[in-house]
Amino acid sequence: MSFSNEQLERYSRHIILKEVGVKGQKKLLNAKVLIIGAGGLGAPCAMYLAATGVGTIGIADADEVDLSNLQRQIIHATEDVGKPKVQSAKETINKMNPDVTVNTYHEFVSSENIMKIIKDYDFIIDGTDNFPAKFLINDACVMAKKPFCHAGIIRFQGQLMTYVPEKGPCYRCVFKEPPPKDAVPTCKQAGVIGAMGGIIGSLQAMEAIKYITGTGELLTGYLLTFNALKMEFRKIKLPKPNGKCAVCGENPSITELIDYEQAECNGV
């Protein structure tokens, strides 16, 4: 593959970086990244990966754009309200960068479909808003030996970590299982600052870019937390996997994917 003049210009600020260069940009254009959840985290993440020139971006989301999403889900616009999020996201990406092929999955990920969806991707972004999906993505990525970046945001806080097979702890090493559905009350509206998704979702994009180009150090074995009120990042070292994890351990007790029940919260 050789670059067109347009591509040389579009990606010139990447190509000039010794950590990326022509070689790195080619890797990005050949890379396939799947974003599960086109919401607060997935929207900014998808936009940066698209602008970056990640050649294939998959987006999985079952929801339609709601007016209350627009405060943080910047890949969607006012005119997109009511449209499937995957369609709205695809249209935005197509406008941003014609080099990107967008695959859409207008469905909830479940134990039935997730292995098939993640199969062809090099890196997976967890941009979901609920714990059943977060555990499902973790377990599926561990079983399929796929790297992924977990993130969560709430109010003025966010966190992320990157799982790379055999290189460090998985999400379940840290958080053993989702909070039970019948914990009463299970959840309440707490709110989130829209820019939190921009900060943490962009960091997820950064992890994908570093993984693809083989640059720098990933958040593998670390949980990065951000408190916007204190304007404080903390990189917390996670314990090494002790071989006892229910999914990535030596004798895993979880060998089939689990569809946990969702607590009674509406979409985020």
Partner: peptide
């Protein structure tokens, strides 16, 4: 902390 992806919090 458990952290989801948006405006709800688990209690």
């Amino acid at each position: 902390y458990f952290m989801g992806g948006g405006s709800y919090v688990i209690l």
